Computed example of a mutant assay.
Amino acid sequence: MRLDPGANEAVDVRAALSRLRRAGGLPVAFGGLLAGAGRYRINELAGTETAVLRGLDIVQGNGLGGKAVALSRPLAVTDYSTSSVISHEYDAAVAAEGLRSVLAVPVIVRRRVRGVLYGALRRPVRLGDRTVSAAMEAARELEQALLLQDEAAQLLSLALPRALHEQGGPPSTAGDPARWEEVREAHGELRGLAQRVGDPLLRQELLAACGRLAAASSRRPGAEGDAPALSPREVDVLTCVASGATNAEVAERLGLRPETVKSYLRSAMRKLGSHTRLQAVIAARRAGALP
């Protein structure tokens, strides 16, 4: 299974729009992400009565959203069609949907505007601080989700090709300790990211990628046996232990109590037939539970 950025991004945008409507008290919300140089495509709608806004390309600087993108800050107008502070390239689409009071919030990841979210009313009402704050919070959550996806995609692009190459590479490179250490680090980071991801489908994709890394390890020369039936949390604990973390550090990383970490570790050691933490990590690697 491979990470599908487009599909996951759409899920995250929809979640942000749902939060914006719920927390901001706005019946209509729409938005989209970067579609090209200086262009942002509206591809997600919530609470609209028509599809006229879908597929609309917002150019940086144009209209309310384009101006919010250019300034990298939220903007709101009480009556879109008569506002004197924005340009009016998109008046026809806004009027066709019957929108009057509109706000726009840029979505910024690593100092780069990646998208724009809108919330709207069908009557001319000044939007208060509570509504604007709710929209900003929805944008911040979307920013965090996109950042996690970026980090996951980067790790996968580095780790998976290397792991798959190493497992079938010539004797001079297969099992290269330095390269496999990079794969192991990526595996640990991916499992950590999976715990922070809210989208269950994306979490499943990340864990599936972790499984591919571990499977690649089990097919290296010298690897042996099948993976024992370790639980996901037992694998999480062993992954942290393999990085040199103490039980207290493992507990902090995974959001568990130290006693719970000890319980998972004892269970994993029993399943692996190991008597020490190091033996458990080695056995898990040999069995393909860890890369």
Rank of each mutant, 00 (worst) to 15 (best):
P5F: 06
N8V: 13
V11E: 14
D12S: 15
R14T: 10
A15M: 08
L17Q: 11
A37K: 06
R41T: 09
E49M: 07
L53Q: 08
D57W: 11
Q60E: 15
L64Y: 08
A68W: 10
L75A: 04
A76T: 12
S87P: 07
V102L: 12
A104G: 12
V105R: 11
I108T: 14
V109R: 13
G119K: 00
A120C: 07
P124C: 01
P124F: 06
V125P: 00
L127K: 02
R130K: 12
Q144E: 15
A145D: 13
L147K: 14
Q149K: 14
L156A: 14
L156D: 05
L160S: 01
P161H: 09
A163Y: 00
A163Q: 00
L164V: 10
H165G: 02
E166S: 15
Q167H: 09
G169A: 15
S172F: 12
A174D: 02
P177L: 02
A178H: 02
R184W: 05
A194G: 07
L202S: 05
Q204C: 00
L206Q: 02
G211E: 05
A214I: 07
G225C: 00
A229R: 15
V235W: 02
V237H: 01
T239C: 06
A248F: 03
E249G: 09
R253K: 12
R253C: 04
L256Y: 04
P258S: 04
S263T: 13
S263Q: 14
Y264A: 07
M269W: 04
L272R: 07
R277K: 15
Q279N: 02
V281K: 09
I282Y: 08
I282R: 14
R286M: 02
